[in-house]
Write a protein that binds this DNA or RNA. Structure first.
Length: 677
DNA sequence: GAGCACTGC
């Protein structure tokens, strides 16, 4: 499939409506008046209201770029930034990258002429390091703020601070109804106080914009079910036999569940009479190879109804046209962070009301639709109004590192939109201190802490990468590749033709006894040596898209190191023939170097069955089935990630180390433990 | 022994 080469091209654009026909057109004057008069405008607009494309155009028309300043519009996702920019450029009759451009990681399509710039909110945060008051912008619109992502929450907090210093800046926040008041109150000065002469009442307004979507009829289940997979299968068959034409979108929680549902449906389809309209089942989840994802967007053949079984990816990230029926299981898989144990957990949890509404809305994009909720109306009413903000359930170490680097010295009393539990902050500070990023007064160390903050890597990996430049490790080139590989979100090995055996065989081909990190290095090296070949990836059950991305990440990381003054090219000559630095072979130096960043993630192998225990001996951990140590033996290991799912704690990306190394590189942590034993 | 919701720099 051609897509394999170019994964970021939007597959289907949002429903197109001529701008003049959008309800927002009638609000132009009101919107511009509000933006002119108040520092903060909260825009409440449903999907299809045109807010994202039209508001920047209105501001441009009204002269907000007259003095050479730009309008920024942030998006939570890369694909949204690129596709919306393309749309606006077209509407203005300009080439993308000229008056209208976009900027996302690895791609800056802007020029000196760019007046409206779409970018991810994470990237705007990075821009603040260079330009803390964001002086190049006259208007900043934060789109989809109601999703409450980590980066948009932090961005809003920082914009509030910027507004206190700049009375010429205008902030537009796009929100769902539910959060609008909260956002407005957050930005407004306290009762009785004034900012730039403006009181609470004079500081901002909420503007509502009607959407252009079709009505969706909601039906609830009468009797609660304890098996929503079966209930979903029943619902699909009911729609298929008794409702009119139209494709079905089913929200489930994960890959395994989706595969089970497809199997169950297969049995039921086999029972159908041949005269009936056919049913085509299609899975959709992020881990699916790109070519398989594409099927979802193709029109169903004649006399066939499409059923898409999807994870939460179809709730906001991906839009599929022609969906008329939505089936909502009422559940979602969410990642949360347990600060006490330092473990991330992946749990199946009930969705929020906001989420349920968003899912239902996916049925009414092209004509009136129906949504079948596999739970009762009472259950719906008992759901949380909105999903817990990410900032209250995440490992905050990366965020806190970034805040400190922006000069926010007191991260505990920082003005969060929703303050995270103090345990999360304490845990993050402890970790950063142990990694050497902070001193005893919780100040960023120089240059280690500031460099760690700048690198687009989790703190432990940032520390590992910086260690690799030290003479005793001398493995910066290898570590660049390893870190790049570790940042890949989707699995590196995929079953191209559904063949698990081929996948495992390929995995074994690259495996080495030192562990997963060196195995990943081997994969990366082999991929690059193949000339980034698609065929090579097919033959070796590798995800081409991921590996191409790893090449970009590596390049970017290397550029950061050069900026820090590390001569990356000089060590490039350190090939296999120069293996020893101080007499230590390269593989050992790499494992030692990993220990300098991952020491807090150490475990000792317990049995023959892939079980490990933590250093304190209190918690049992299991090698993830993708690990080299699922089959092989080790004594001590460090690992990159720990994740609890279905009651079992798995560790991923393991490498063999020695306890002596841990004591050597993290004496404060391990001498104490040694003494206690 | 048997698994990976979704984003982002």
């Amino acid at each position: 499939m051609a897509d394999e080469e170019d994964p970021d091209v939007p597959i289907l654009p949002d429903l197109y409506k001529p701008p003049a026909l959008l309800p927002i057109a009638q609000l132009k004057d009101q919107l511009l008046y509000t933006i002119e008069t108040y520092p903060v405008t909260i825009v409440v607009g449903a999907t299809g209201s045109g807010k994202t494309t039209q508001i920047p155009k209105f501001c441009l028309d009204a002269g907000w770029c007259a003095d050479g300043k730009q309008i920024a519009v942030t998006q939570p996702r890369r694909i949204a930034a690129t596709s919306v920019a393309a749309r606006v450029a077209e509407e203005l009759g300009t080439l993308l990258g000229q008056r209208v451009g976009y900027s996302i990681r690895f791609e800056d399509v802007t020029s000196a002429n760019t007046q409206v710039k779409f970018l991810t909110d994470g990237l705007l945060l990075r821009e603040m390091l260079v330009d803390p008051l964001l002086n190049r912008y006259s208007v900043i619109m934060v789109d989809e703020a109601h999703e409450r992502s980590l980066s948009s929450d932090i961005l809003l907090s920082l914009l509030k601070k910027v507004l206190r210093k700049r009375d010429d800046l205008r902030v537009v926040v796009s929100s769902a109804t539910l959060e609008a008041e909260r956002f407005l109150n957050f930005f407004a000065p306290d009762e009785g106080e004034k900012v730039h002469g403006k009181s609470k009442e004079e500081y901002g307004r909420i503007v509502g914009i009607q959407g252009r979507t079709y009505p969706v009829e909601i039906q609830y289940i009468i009797e609660p079910t304890n098996n929503y997979v079966e209930a979903a299968v029943d619902a699909i068959m009911n729609i298929h036999t008794s409702e009119s034409d139209g494709d079905i979108l089913v929200f489930l929680t994960g890959r395994e569940e989706i595969d089970d549902t497809i199997d169950l449906l297969g049995d039921r389809i086999a029972d159908m009479s041949s005269k009936q309209q056919k049913l085509l089942t299609l899975p959709l989840y992020a881990g699916l190879p790109t070519d398989a994802q594409m099927f979802v967007f193709q029109k169903a053949p004649t006399n066939t109804r499409k059923v898409i079984l999807s994870t939460n990816i179809a709730e906001a990230s991906v839009t599929i046209d022609d969906i008329v029926y939505v089936i909502d299981s009422g559940y979602v898989k969410l990642r949360t962070y347990d600060a006490r144990l330092g473990i991330e957990t992946l749990n199946v949890l009930p969705v929020s009301q906001a989420s349920a509404t968003q899912r239902a809305g996916r049925a009414g994009r092209t004509r009136p639709g129906k949504c079948f909720r596999l739970y009762t109306e009472e259950t719906y009413k008992s759901l949380e109004e909105a999903t817990f903000p990410e900032i209250q359930r995440s490992n905050l170490a990366p965020v806190i590192l970034q805040l400190l680097n922006l000069g926010i010295t007191n991260v505990v009393r920082f003005d969060y939109l929703s303050p995270p539990p103090s345990s999360l902050i304490t845990r993050a500070l402890d970790l950063l201190y142990s990694l050497g990023a902070l001193d005893i007064h919780a100040r960023l160390t120089k240059p280690l802490g500031t460099r760690m903050a700048e690198l687009p890597l989790p703190p432990q990996l940032a520390r590992t990468l910086l260690s690799s430049c030290a003479p005793q490790f001398s493995c910066v080139n290898e570590m660049l590749s390893i870190c790049a590989m570790l940042t890949l979100q989707s699995p590196v090995f995929v079953a191209h033709d559904g063949s698990k055996a081929a996948l495992e065989a390929a995995r074994r081909r690259f495996s080495v006894r030192q562990g997963d990190h060196l195995t990943l290095y081997n994969v990366f090296q082999a991929f690059v040596s193949s000339g980034a070949s698609v065929l090579f990836c097919r033959e070796n059950a590798l995800n081409h898209k991921s590996l191409v991305r790893a090449v970009s990440v590596r390049k970017q990381l290397a550029a950061y190191l050069s900026r820090f003054g590390v001569d990356v090219s000089a060590t490039a000559v350190c090939g296999p023939e120069v293996l020893a630095a101080g007499g230590v072979p390269l593989p050992e130096r790499i494992c030692r170097c990993l220990a300098t960043g991952l020491f807090a993630h150490a475990a000792r192998m317990k049995g023959e069955d892939g079980s490990f225990v933590t250093v304190d001996g209190k918690t049992v951990l299991w090698a993830h089935p993708s690990s080299v140590f699922f089959h092989r033996k080790a004594e001590w290991v460090v690992y990159t990630e720990m994740l609890e799912t279905k009651g079992k704690i798995y560790i991923r990306d393991l490498s063999s180390v020695e306890m002596d190394w841990l004591v050597e590189y993290a004496p404060e942590v391990y001498r104490v433990r040694e003494g206690k034993r």
